[in-house]
Design a protein around this nucleic acid. Sequence first.
DNA 1: GGTAGTATGTGAACACTGTTCACATTTAAT
DNA 2: ATTAAATGTGAACAGTGTTCACATACTACC
Lengths: 200, 200
Amino acid sequence: MKKPKTSYHHGDLAESLLNAVDELATKFGLEAVTLRSCAKRVGVSPSSAFRHYADKRTLLTAFATRALMQLSTVLASANKAALHKDQDAFLAVSLAYIKFAIEKPAFFRAMWREETIYTTDDAYMEAIIVLTSTIKGGFASSLVDDDASSMSSAELLAWSSVHGLANLLIDGPVGNGLSKAQKTSLATDMLELLQPALEA
Amino acid sequence: MKKPKTSYHHGDLAESLLNAVDELATKFGLEAVTLRSCAKRVGVSPSSAFRHYADKRTLLTAFATRALMQLSTVLASANKAALHKDQDAFLAVSLAYIKFAIEKPAFFRAMWREETIYTTDDAYMEAIIVLTSTIKGGFASSLVDDDASSMSSAELLAWSSVHGLANLLIDGPVGNGLSKAQKTSLATDMLELLQPALEA
DNA sequence: GGTAGTATGTGAACACTGTTCACATTTAAT
DNA sequence: ATTAAATGTGAACAGTGTTCACATACTACC
């Protein structure tokens, strides 16, 4: 990770700090991510972070943006894989969404926490748009998409269900003592029950 | 609020601190709730808070517990009112759930934030149980409840959808420029689309 | 190739945070 | 009335985000 070819300049501090957030959030949770610990992890002085991010909140916004893009990528490839194997795209995308939340809860939480990020940031907003359209695309095979900009009731229902279950599993009482397999089966059952309602 | 009948002892500091969390979270958001500001608001020294709460996290857990009970109460009375007026209970309870999240976002966030509260706290766990059964009770009129302890797929789907929409509205891109009325109508449309799937 | 200018990293300082602890004060029990 | 327990205080600690004058390295131009 470190590039000690020059002792003073780091080379790519902005990205390295994001990686530090990534690692610390994964290991110790979002709440434990501190600017100073990120700087220390990268091997740099705390104040240097401010050359690249105006704020701690700006850094977290960049991290949230990155997480959003990762999720979009995961969903898109799940969609593609399902279509390729002639499986149900809605189920595959939904399960990928929930799986992402379960496996990277800190990432999932960071994406949406309005009090900790700048939701009007340009890059963040675009990542949101990309995710939204990816989700709509992933649901498109089973849904009638009338409008490109706004969401239909069916799309909203699909997203809400999946998003809600993901949240209940990582920040709620539902998935408490359950293994990952049990959670997945829970999700599958729920999704199969939902599916008929989306095809009306 | 203040009781200056005795200058030294406060009388009911534990509850007053909870009220302070309440007010500060409402005005400035959860992130802005600080132990010192709560103490100052109550007119007491910062260290005195530790006579009643071992931790800041313990205080926030108590606040989350209180919020959970408030939500339970709201849902129960929505359910009762709907039955009384011979209206649909599921719709009424769901809308009350979403309305609570929209009107008291800081409360709603505090209830579920696993990193900021002690989810194994006894009072908290009981409040969760009460809420869960209240929700199941609220959905019971349209759902077949087979088991008392675990949740059926239909119940999980109902809760996930409602919970997910609530989250998307307060910590997500869905409700961004929308008025409260628009959000409510969005929710109503979604719920009416969902309803048939729950009666299978 | 040397020099000016700009980008990037540093160290010390600021106010603020949660938390502790010896101490002060009030209430309750005997 | 005296003791014990409960409750509030003030000063201190390490850790936080943030700023700013300063140091160092990279870039562009003559």
